[in-house]
Amino acid sequence: MRKLWVYLLRTLLFALCVAAWELGARGNPELTEFFPPLSLIFPTAVQSIAQGELPRHLGSSLATFLKAYALAAFIGLTGGVLLGRWRWLFHLFEPPIELLRPLPTPAMIPIAILIFGIDESMRIAITVYACTWPILLNTIDGVRGAEPVLIHTAHTFGASERQLLLKVILRAASPQMVTGLRISLGIALILVVTSEMIAAVDGIGFYILETARNFEVAEMFGAVLVLALLGYLLNKTFVSLEGRAMAWYYGSKKREAR
């Protein structure tokens, strides 16, 4: 009964929002240029998808995103394990990290432009820079937080450093590694779009800014909706993969809580 109420209220709220947009836009035809009704946005969005323009830009962004994310994951995870395992290495790198960490990432974009120019390598570099932080810092935390008892036990049973790393430490640190990877997912998308807006001639960020500047508002809204959908799907995919890979961890936590 209660569930039904919630469901009804939800639908009502959703319908209200859609209706407000549609009627608000239709009631003020002089505003259509900025604020087209939804019934106009959807056909335009479908059209720009069918014509291949939106998919082309989206594909370019996705390629940048995947390359940068993979690279950041590699750097962050390896670096994190090294810095987490060897304390002296961590202390060596701590001051440079502390110096760079509070700097808002977009401030690095101009430097990246100086080094890489305005092609894809710049966008990849800046995205890698931004995404590496959460992965790196979480991995360091995870590796350091591995139960000493686990490590001592493994040592006592004669585990080699290699076995210790692969079978004990990586496994113990994996929940935090995954957290870092999840945080970086959203950051990667933001930085790809931002760098495309500031310096690029393709990609979804460029397309959104370009259509806005040309007052092609329906195309712009269409692209924004597609981008939101992409963000949603990426997140969903990650969470479902995470659920599968980390099932053992959540299971063990649930048992502990009991």
Partner: peptide, 14 residues
């Protein structure tokens, strides 16, 4: 999940 940055052009319009 919407990257806020994508909304900047929209908000500039308004």
């Amino acid at each position: 999940p919407m990257p806020i940055v994508a909304l900047i052009p929209v908000i500039i319009l308004f």
